[in-house]
């Protein structure tokens, strides 16, 4: 474990917590008898969260952590896997099923066919992998899928007029975690012999590059202290 990887995992955890906070805000808000102005805004405007991306991430964790009960690595590793599995599936459940949260989900805008991401990633995992075994192919699939899982969310953000802060923070933290992982891979490459994993590295690089334009608009909105806006 190195500082880059720990920072990466904590950033990833933060992104999940921000999303859970956002869902909690929507839930608690709608419970009020009188719609306060914030509540009204929250409930009327779409939450800006893409269910498609959340479903893709649930699939990423489900196929990435197949070995959670077979290969024990550390308490930290197991706990974090359980947190990511539990949170991603519960977020999908909230947006799909929760009587209040699902009202803030704008399915007419979140139209990305994530099937078009799942199939190519699966085919690619069948062709390019480190070992042609069930677990290894699914693990490789989860790497390819995670690289593109943010696309429905980024496209939804372009369509969403005013991106609220929590959603912007969520996407930023999600992009930042993989960027920190790249530093972790560089560190491990120079400190550990035989540590070479092209598939992981290239997938992680592609994933981070997909956030490049978001990072640009995110930082310029911070610098100019204006609302985050992605060009359509």
């Amino acid at each position: 474990m190195n500082i880059f990887r720990l920072a990466g995992d904590m950033t990833h955890l933060m992104s999940v917590l921000v999303l859970l906070l956002k869902i909690h805000t929507i839930k608690s808000c709608a419970g009020k008898s009188y719609p306060c102005s914030l509540c009204f805004i929250l409930l009327e405007s779409s939450s800006g969260i893409s269910l498609k991306t959340q479903e893709l991430y649930a699939l990423v964790f489900a196929t990435r952590y197949l070995d959670i009960f077979t290969d024990f690595i550390s308490v930290y590793n197991t706990i974090m896997k359980l947190i990511f599995l539990g949170s991603s599936f519960s977020i999908v459940w909230y947006i799909r099923r929760h009587k209040i949260v699902r009202r803030s989900y704008d399915k007419d805008q979140d139209t990305f066919r994530h099937f078009f991401l799942v199939l190519p990633c699966l085919l690619l995992a069948l062709i390019i992998n480190e070992k042609f075994t069930f677990k290894e192919v699914l693990w490789t699939f989860s790497l390819y899928l995670e690289a593109v899982a943010i696309l429905p969310q980024l496209i939804l953000l372009q369509r969403t007029r005013n991106i609220d802060n929590l959603t912007g923070q969520y996407v930023f933290l999600l992009g930042a975690y993989r960027a920190l992982y790249i530093l972790n891979w560089i560190y491990r490459y120079f400190t550990e012999p035989h540590y070479v994993h092209w598939i992981t590295w290239i997938s992680g690089l592609v994933q981070t590059l997909l956030y490049a334009d978001f990072f640009y608009y995110y930082f310029s909105s911070l610098k100019n202290n204006v609302k985050l806006k992605l060009p359509a």
Binding site: R5, D9, H12, R64, D67, D71, I73, S74, N77, M80, K81, F84, W139, Y181, N184, W185, R188, E192, P193, H194, Y195, H197, T200
Partner: peptide, 10 residues
Amino acid sequence: KKASSSKDEL
């Protein structure tokens, strides 16, 4: 020693 795999990462 098992080649340090990236499976020990999340």
